[in-house]
Nucleic acid binder design. Structure first.
Lengths: 340, 340
DNA sequence: CAAAATGGCCAAAGCGCTTTGGAAGGCTCT
DNA sequence: AGAGCCTTCCAAAGCGCTTTGGCCATTTTG
């Protein structure tokens, strides 16, 4: 059933039927009702390919997926996707993933924009002065960034959590509990979120005249193994930290293992706070010692980003509105006063 | 730059240029070269929307993503996606995720087929007599199943690992080490892979006159917490198992925690083998006691599925070829002879 | 009361490809 | 020499929508 057939059986022109269906004003309400009714009764659905060709709109949102033999997709991605799906499902919005060589995403961005394959894109894990941002900005496709970049002379729409504030609060608590030597096990130091977390922590320490020595920062990919290694190096140092703040739950698993291997205890010898993106399959309260966390659901962020992308596509949102979500600090058994 | 312009500047008809570009035989090799050359020089790329409208082919593969407030996307999905991307990247194949209400995926399947949004789909985590399989089979869209179903009177193309064999081998090893009471912590019992694993284990036990009691099987969603709970119930039983086979690394984390909480040790009091899908962020060799595993890279499976989907789209593969990959049994410190 | 504005509809021209149904020219073959 | 056959190319007809420009009848306006 296509438009031609439908309009013929209604004895109307394609124009009128099309307009009626798409809510244009220049059609009689009575006629519109007739059309709507017939369309529903015959299960008419406009052919998206044809509509795309005519309008240039695809009704899909895009994501360029960096891939490569040495590239692992972040497990957080799945949670983000759940959130995106939560929103997209009820709006018949599809998501197209375009795999790209991680060393050359630009080609792919250009392709999907030139081909008008998607109406909007989102960008995740941005870095300062991230090229992708500058690119999509000049390409003129609607987008929303999950996270923040830095060092641009233009504004852009984003959704980020208050990483700096979160780690500031975490460190502040530890300092108040008497800890003097704190350490940070961070994610990739080139990503903005990691920079912000470090900044927040430094700020909290500085407020009490403390500093974060180079030896007390480790920036690594977020795996259990890296968490373990980082913790070992920190704890086997001549001046080991008495508290660690850690950028992910998965790394925290490694930290806990290292602590155990060294015959230390949490929170007796070491206080630990980690950031929790809220995975259904790994929960901080179930750690051997319930883990204190800075918590922010990445799934909710996914849903919100989908919502904003949809809004930007339909013109309901414009401008460069940045949105920063506060982060909860949830205190559990893994923090205690500094050992004496 | 579109076909019209290109053909005009070559003083050729659109027909000829189109044919030259798409490798049809009825065009002079000399002309074809000229066309190819000009196309490359001017960076001509056929408009996919137009091509879609004309041919009905989209050049994309689809996946219906079950979502819902109570539905979590499997973290394995991300690894699978990495593999898919490994192949798709070099073939300019995009993946479109269509979020669907987990209780009604049929509507979405019908939509994407009716709309010709994708050229092929893949189906994951099938159950016996899975409705989706019957559906796509009748809808007539090319597909490949990741995993296997059961109880159909038609064959279908799939890629699966030898779950039954893997768990058979794992259990056989444990029996040979003298274990008499084995337990299984499985995934969702309604999914085929879980059924196969249980079957494999039962077969191994039966071969030695042993059985797997109802109390010694737990089927749960694969989270750390569920692994913990299942292990506690098993180990606090009047007749606790001396060995556990576990369907995922994440659940194994919970098992290890339970063992510890109960003051037991691995492998002294309990031998443990888990299935490893090969996550970059959690590796069995880094468990407190290196974990024995049945191992199969889900990422490689993703790449292979993408390859087969592409082959089916282009007609290089047809029929209902099923492909079953063997699974490695990797023995590490977590298994030992049964306690005396 | 003529002129202008409005409401409701339509025919046809795109959108940029692929594909059908020739057609022209050169060749071989009887 | 004419029929028949390749080879190589082309004009034009889709694919199924949206949108432009206009038409007619009715209503409003000065």
């Amino acid at each position: 059933m296509n438009l031609k057939q439908l309009s013929h059986m209604l004895s109307l022109s394609q124009t009128t039927v099309s307009r009626a269906l798409n809510g244009y004003p220049e059609v009689n309400e009575e006629t519109r009702r007739r059309v709507m009714d017939a369309a529903k009764r015959h299960g008419y659905r406009p052919n998206p390919s044809a509509r795309r060709l005519a309008t240039g709109k695809s009704g899909m949102i895009g994501y360029v997926l960096p891939t490569g033999a040495a590239v692992d997709i972040d497990p957080h991605f799945v949670e983000f996707l759940s959130g995106l799906g939560d929103y997209a499902r009820s709006h018949e919005l599809d998501l197209v993933l375009s795999p790209a060589d991680a060393d050359d995403e630009e080609t792919t961005y250009r392709r999907i924009v030139a081909n008008r394959q998607v109406d909007a894109v989102y960008i995740s894990s941005p870095r300062p002065a991230d090229k992708r941002l500058a690119l999509v900005n000049t390409l003129g496709i609607p987008f929303v960034v999950h996270g923040r970049s830095e060092g641009f002379d233009f504004d852009y729409p984003y959704l980020d959590i208050d990483n700096e504030g979160a780690f500031h609060e975490a460190a502040r608590l530890l300092v108040q509990l008497g800890h003097q030597r704190l350490a940070l096990i961070n994610g990739n130091e080139r990503e903005t979120f990691a920079i912000h977390r470090e900044r927040g922590m430094r700020r909290a320490l500085a407020a009490s005249g403390l500093t974060l020595g180079e030896r007390h920062i480790r920036s690594v990919a977020m795996t259990e193994e890296n968490g373990y290694r980082a913790a070992r190096r920190l704890l086997e140092d001549a001046e080991p930290p008495t508290a660690i703040v850690c950028s992910s739950l998965i790394m925290a698993l490694g930290v806990v293992r290292a602590v155990r291997d060294l015959g230390l205890t949490i929170p007796g010898d070491l206080s630990l706070i980690a950031h929790d993106d809220v995975f259904p399959w790994l929960r901080p309260e179930n750690f051997p010692v319930p883990l204190s966390t800075t918590r922010s659901s990445i799934r909710l962020a996914g849903a919100r980003i989908a919502e904003r992308l949809a809004a930007r596509i339909s013109g309901l949102e414009d401008g460069a509105r940045g949105e920063v979500w506060p982060v909860d600090l949830v205190v559990r058994g893994s923090v205690a006063g500094a050992p004496v």
